[in-house]
Computed example of a mutant assay.
Amino acid sequence: MKDWQPTEETVAVKSFAESFLSSGRFDAEYYQPKYDQVEEAIKDCGFLSQNLGSLIEPIQNGFDYREYTEEGTPYIRVGDVKNGQINFESAVKIPITMANVDKSVGLQIGDIIFTRKGSFGNSAVVTELEVNGIISSEIMLVRLTSVSRQEVLPEYVSLFLNSKFGYLQVEHRVHGVAYYSISQPDLANLLIPILPKYQQQKIAEKIKSSFSLKLKSKQLLEIAKTGVERAIETDEATATIWINQQLEALGVKLT
Rank of each mutant, 00 (worst) to 15 (best):
K2G: 11
W4A: 09
Q5N: 04
T10D: 07
T10Q: 03
T10L: 03
V11P: 04
A12Y: 10
A12I: 02
V13P: 02
A17R: 14
D27P: 01
D27Q: 14
Y31C: 07
Y31A: 13
Q37D: 06
Q37L: 11
E39G: 09
A41M: 09
D44V: 02
C45E: 13
G46K: 12
F47S: 13
Q50I: 06
I56L: 03
E57Q: 06
E57N: 02
P58W: 15
I59C: 01
G62H: 02
F63H: 12
F63T: 08
Y65H: 10
E67W: 08
T69V: 03
V78M: 08
D80C: 15
V81W: 03
G84A: 05
N87F: 01
F88M: 09
E89G: 05
A91I: 03
A91Q: 01
K93S: 03
I94Y: 05
T97W: 07
M98P: 09
V101G: 12
S104I: 03
S104M: 12
V105E: 06
D111M: 00
R116D: 03
G121R: 00
T127Y: 08
T127P: 05
E130V: 04
V131F: 07
V131H: 11
G133K: 01
I134Q: 00
I135M: 05
I135L: 06
S136Y: 03
V142A: 10
T145F: 05
S146D: 11
S148V: 14
R149E: 10
E151W: 10
F165K: 01
G166P: 09
Q169R: 01
E171W: 05
H172F: 01
V174P: 07
G176M: 04
G176A: 03
A178S: 08
Y179Q: 07
P185W: 08
D186F: 07
A188T: 01
N189C: 11
L190W: 01
I192D: 01
I192S: 02
L195N: 10
P196W: 00
Q199M: 09
Q200E: 08
I203A: 12
A204H: 06
E205A: 05
K206Y: 15
K206W: 13
I207T: 15
S209D: 11
S212L: 15
L213Y: 00
L220E: 08
L221Y: 00
I223E: 13
K225E: 08
T226V: 10
V228S: 15
R230H: 15
I232Q: 01
I232S: 00
D235R: 10
T238F: 06
I241P: 07
I243A: 14
N244G: 04
E248A: 13
V252Y: 15
L254P: 13
L254D: 12
T255K: 14
